[in-house]
Design a protein around this nucleic acid. Structure first.
Length: 328
DNA sequence: CTCGCCTA
DNA sequence: TAGGCGAGG
């Protein structure tokens, strides 16, 4: 998923408290995918209501978002629109990987191999239209805004940060840097086992690598992205070396006698001039308590006590008033 | 993944 | 107060 830049990207360590008072644009597909992969039982079965409908994403969204809000951080979720045509090959490939993983999961379950079952279950996670719509419904009830991107959610989230309407994008993928996000936060979670958050700052990264954003995109195209395969045998380190030596992707390709599986100019445009919109409004409301209880507890069988606790965390004004009352 | 409870 | 652990739906 995403471009493999990890080995060369400089990240600083921050704590969740450092985000207090800031607005974070959450890469919704990336986050929901992680919830669907990880919120599972030991044998890989996701959380489900009594009708067999998956609820792992609802659990993740409710508990993580309410805990983040309690820390004084505002969030907006950014969803995908239609995928650019060049991504189709990646999407098809991922689908076949999931289908294969699901077969192996079921097989391991039949054979009673619990750990193996979980491993394949995680790989079989799939974001269905129903998962998207129930996620949006819950966010709406929670009073948390969400934006629907015309195309890539990561591109739109990056644009919102560039506009100054959010401080950083939260995503595990490095692609947001290619889309021009000034800041990306990785590992945004509450209970990270002493594991700190990573802050990626585009300007600092470019300065340190001594390249431009255009050159970073050229590197990504050599390595391979969701939109092209890249050149076999080229990883982040050699891509950096080649681009710094030759200046741009055309010179590198000429030097190597290689061709990209796509028009470099069109591929560059996907990242440098992405399909995004100004048509979004970010406004936060207080949570609809009855609505959340009805949806999660009555419709999907969540524990009313736990859900009430999560709702309390989201009532920021009340907790401020309470602390003022305590003070005076 | 996070919650809630437990123990050091 | 920190972290290990089983359950959550």
């Amino acid at each position: 998923m995403g471009v493999k830049l990890k080995d060369i990207i400089y990240a600083s360590k921050i704590k969740i408290g450092d985000l207090k008072g800031r607005i974070i644009a959450i890469d919704a597909p990336n986050t929901i995918y992680q919830f669907l992969s990880s919120i599972r039982q030991k044998d890989g079965t996701p959380l489900m209501d009594r009708k067999g409908r998956i609820t792992s994403h609802l659990s993740g969204i409710l508990y993580r978002t309410s805990a983040i809000i309690e820390k004084g951080i505002k969030v907006v979720y950014v969803f995908d629109g239609k995928s650019p045509h060049l991504k189709m090959e990646t999407i098809t490939k991922r689908r076949s990987v999931r289908v294969e993983a699901e077969k192996r999961w079921k097989k391991a379950l039949r054979e009673g191999k619990i750990e193996e079952a979980r491993k394949y279950a995680v790989r079989s996670a799939r974001i269905s239209p129903d998962i998207i719509s129930t996620s949006k419904k819950l966010l709406d009830l929670m009073g948390v805004p969400f934006v629907e991107a015309p195309a890539e959610g990561e591109a739109q989230a990056s644009y919102i940060v560039q506009n100054g309407d959010a401080w950083a994008v939260a995503s595990q993928d490095y692609d947001c840097l290619l889309f021009g996000a000034p800041r990306v936060v990785r590992n945004l979670a509450i209970t990270g086992r002493a594991q700190e958050l990573e802050l990626l700052e585009l300007e600092r990264i470019l300065k340190r690598l001594e390249i431009t954003r255009e050159q970073l995109v050229d590197m990504a195209l050599l390595i391979g992205t969701d939109f092209n395969k890249g050149i076999k045998g080229i990883g982040p380190k050699s891509a950096l070396k080649f681009i710094k030596e030759k200046g741009n992707i055309y010179n590198v390709l000429e030097e190597l006698g290689e061709e990209l599986d796509g028009d470099p100019e069109i591929l560059r445009e996907i990242f440098l001039n992405p399909d995004v919109t100004d048509d979004y409004k970010l406004s936060w409301r207080s949570p609809n308590r009855e609505g959340i209880i009805d949806f999660l507890c009555h419709e999907h069988g969540f524990s009313e006590e736990r859900v009430q606790n999560a709702i309390k965390k989201m009532q920021v004004e009340k907790s401020i008033q309470k602390s003022l009352t305590d003070w005076f």
